[in-house]
Design a protein around this nucleic acid. Sequence first.
DNA 1: GTCTATAACCGGATAGAC
DNA 2: GTCTATCCGGTTATAGAC
Lengths: 234, 234
Amino acid sequence: MTEALPDPRPTKGEETRRKILDTALELFKERGYEETTMRAISEKAEVAVGNAYYYFRSKEHLIQGFYAASHEDHLRASADALAVERDLKKRLRAVLLAKIETSQPYHRFAGILFKSAADPNSPLSPFSPESSPVRQACTELFARVLSESKVKVPKDLADELPNLLWLYQMGIILFWIHDSSPGARRSRLLVEHTVDIVARLITLASAPLLAPVRKRIVKLLLDLRERADEVVKA
Amino acid sequence: MTEALPDPRPTKGEETRRKILDTALELFKERGYEETTMRAISEKAEVAVGNAYYYFRSKEHLIQGFYAASHEDHLRASADALAVERDLKKRLRAVLLAKIETSQPYHRFAGILFKSAADPNSPLSPFSPESSPVRQACTELFARVLSESKVKVPKDLADELPNLLWLYQMGIILFWIHDSSPGARRSRLLVEHTVDIVARLITLASAPLLAPVRKRIVKLLLDLRERADEVVKA
DNA sequence: GTCTATAACCGGATAGAC
DNA sequence: GTCTATCCGGTTATAGAC
């Protein structure tokens, strides 16, 4: 009867998994990634080392958990602004600042993220298939930023823009990682000054008059995208 | 008498250092970075592990040698075009394509490089003080791209642009690392299509009419730059 | 399928003797 | 400067319990 529902009660396993992840993130935040040993995580989470490895294939994979948790935070922090605001620039600005805001406690730890991010072979790379779910979720947020704004974006561009905006956010984050100014002052400054340009470009590119230019750009974007079958052709 | 010269004969130590580095790079290229152990390097170089660590603080530090060598290659590959060509767009294009060209043999190995590069705490980060010499050398190349072109760039902008162009190149390389298309086709495509825009923006920004806009941008760039004394103020 | 406990392996890094 | 021995921590293996 109640069977059809999509798992309202967390399994025992889910709970353990959660406990391990939470403990790990707590320790990472507290004393850094390198300084936190798997043994320490297991001990504090009151599980055996082997059990931690049962749920997470490697120490790095714990970072995947961070990705997801971080996105949840981001969603929550963006919700209010997105519900009220309809101006594209202001929506974008709110979302990006929310990202910085929610990530700030993990600033020290975040460097490690991009260490993996830059390695195309790592399962943690934001472009890897293993990261696909989180990446998709993040992209969807930007789709919402667009779709519920006043700006009318043509279909072809609307399909690509969320990806581009996500990339834009990655750029901001990359800057933020290297930004040690108090309260991430410089990163905020970067957002304030670029959001303006980006929003203007989107509005501009959506104008019917610029359809030919837009089509050329969209085509380029498609050409630049990695295709799975490419290797075979070579 | 011969004492004043800057070391024409290599010391015993220099020789050992060289042997370790060469052996390491050889093994890295041959079987990959992760797969090459410090023990293997030491053995093949016929030194003790401890001795390798006497000359290189960590396995990662062995990579620094690669950076420098790579830039030398890039300089050589760009020289001809820079000597002949005076059109900014063509100069930029030649330099960027040369970067891709010369890096191509190390594509597999390059992922590891940028893994360290993205970590702000790593001494290998391109923004770290330890990387300053190589970074400076790379930036100088772009200064030359600009200074010997036909475009007259105002002083304030000219001071900042080489850094920006270097950053632009880093973006291209980041893309290239994730690009597995044969012959880096997609990365070349990216260069072809962005060089155009960048060159046009530079020309545009250099127009006397746009001085106010330019001043605002340059000020923003300066504000965004990390200052060493910032931490103290907090 | 979930979990414990413990020992072992491997490779980066270090200590301290020569 | 160079060595050997050792440490440390990520990871794996094993063997067994619910």
